[in-house]
Write a protein that binds this DNA or RNA. Structure first.
Lengths: 303, 303
DNA sequence: AGTCTGATATCCATATATGAATGTCAGGCG
DNA sequence: CGCCTGACATTCATATATGGATATCAGACT
């Protein structure tokens, strides 16, 4: 193997880390098990003889050294995927793949209506949505464009603020008919509150301001979409972005002006991607339409 | 070449982009020119037949498609380098390579005194300093640990605030003896001001607050170290971090309490690097010693 | 205890990528 | 005008990585 190309060895290493065995890694890469074994061996030698795996009858156990380089190799993988997306169509054409990261709620409730007309205008466009409750990793190139709720500070990122969206409390008309609505924040304790199991920056702020704690929530979900569904189903009182709630006449504001938080919306991408026509086009479109969304225009009517 | 490993083709592509010709790229990678030619050809085919270079009698001219994927491949390269650093010594040992990004001033005036004792204690440590006036790219893994002046927002980064440092105006005693010192901000216009040619966030703020513009600077340098040297040489009045100026009894404060800005100091690294013993050790050491620096303790006496 | 399973190591014929030498081409320069 | 230079393309013998078959091993299960 001599001084064989380290990069391809990294790729094999990553496959072995993910699959846990040479055989499965071989199947993943469409290579053979002996080849993967040789790659791992060669990599260990190229890295100064460091042991990467302890050979086990049930597979290969990664050592601490393997864990140390893994995040970097994963970053390489994400960048390689990004390169594939960038090369999915000529850079100057308005077609090809664009991967967008956003929160689950934005991805499910807002983006479809925004992206559909763009797709109609440019049928060659292919969208990938990376929806995650936690901020997706633009820095690792896991996506091309991100819809964020905090201003990015990294210098090489291009960011546009699309406006601010109010997050407030709502309840379905049916729930209000059965239980009434609170008149003061202190009344909230007597109601069925839809909360969040995980630490959400906004909800945490809200909970702190209202002196709520987890025990007071009648429904705790680690999924914003499920919480939204529960709100619409009349389960109780929950938080919702104002423009989304405004679409549904059956959702009534709860304690408006008392409980409301401003959430910034930012569209972010790597500055270098401006050279790729479709990336720039999608970025501009997102910035424009998210701005309309923030102003309260329903995305279905936009574009 | 068939479905050969894309990752090694990327590496060849990067070399060709950097060198501008197959022959020089071959020399760089210790391969032959025909091999590089085949790699480029194979990559073009693997990427759906996209043209990456126009063959020119003086070399290969990258197409727009090549420019589109280049930043991603560079990110792969940075990650590969980071992996090499991570593998430069066993993960559990306090030896091996650590790459630190910082501003030129911090790298030249502060870090040496902080790193020296750590190196004495652990002779196996090897430091790489990436000093750059613009924020170095932690997100691209161009370094392992960064000393920053803004709080990072990316979730996967570990950040510790080491305190705040005052940036204020100073002048050398000799300059003061010859020209006196201003008593009010308006007096500044009559003095030799050492300014900065580029856009510096802090200096921009300072200039705005003092109603200075570029034309008023008697010396414009795009290099903080040269500006510091000019200040020490008695050229005129310039900005300097207070703990650095305090070391030199000949540097006199100018308009203290009138012109001063607080600069935050953050130590940042990727969270995953905490697993690597030397990374965690250097991170903790930097956080501790930079905190001492921010409190005014000279790093030479620290540690 | 015996057997079965799923894993890694070993071996050798083969497919494949590689490199040295050579051919080809376009522009610079005397 | 013609040589020289530095580039890419082509060719073919060689070195090298690959894959299939096989051996081996440790634990799970009956």
């Amino acid at each position: 193997m001599s001084g064989a190309d380290l990069w391809s060895l990294y790729r094999s290493f990553l496959a072995v880390m993910r699959e846990g065995s040479l055989s499965r890694a071989a199947a993943l890469l469409d290579l053979s098990q002996p080849t993967l074994g040789r790659h791992v061996e060669a990599l260990e030698q190229a890295l100064g003889g460091a042991l990467l795996f302890t050979r086990h009858p049930r597979g290969l156990m990664p050592t601490e050294n393997a864990h140390a380089i893994l995040p970097h190799i994963e970053a390489m993988d994400a960048a390689a995927d990004a390169a594939l997306r960038a090369a999915s169509a000529p850079a100057s054409s308005l077609s090809g793949v664009v991967r967008i990261a956003a929160s689950e709620v934005v991805g499910a409730e807002v983006l479809p209506g925004i992206l559909a007309p763009l797709r109609e205008a440019h049928p060659g466009l292919v969208f990938e949505l990376a929806l995650s409750s936690r901020a997706a990793d633009l820095l690792r190139r896991d996506c091309d464009i991100a819809v964020r709720m905090v201003r990015p500070t990294q210098g090489s990122l291009v960011a546009v603020k699309a406006g601010t969206v109010k997050v407030a409390l709502y309840a379905h008309r049916l729930y209000a008919a059965r239980h009434g609505l609170p008149r003061t924040p202190d009344d909230l304790g007597a109601h069925a509150l839809i909360g969040f199991d995980r630490a959400d920056p906004f909800l945490a702020r809200a909970a702190g301001a209202l002196k709520l704690d987890r025990a007071m929530f009648a429904l705790r979900v680690d999924n914003d979409l499920a919480a939204l569904a529960a709100l619409r189903a009349g389960f109780g009182i929950g938080a919702c972005q104002q423009p989304i709630a405004a679409r549904d006449a059956d959702l009534l504001p709860v304690l408006p002006r008392v409980v409301a938080f401003d959430m910034e919306i930012w569209i972010v991408m790597h500055g270098a991607l401006k050279r790729v026509a479709r990336m720039a086009a999608v970025f501009d479109h997102l910035a424009r339409q998210m701005r309309a969304y923030a102003r309260g225009h329903s995305p279905e009517r936009a574009g």
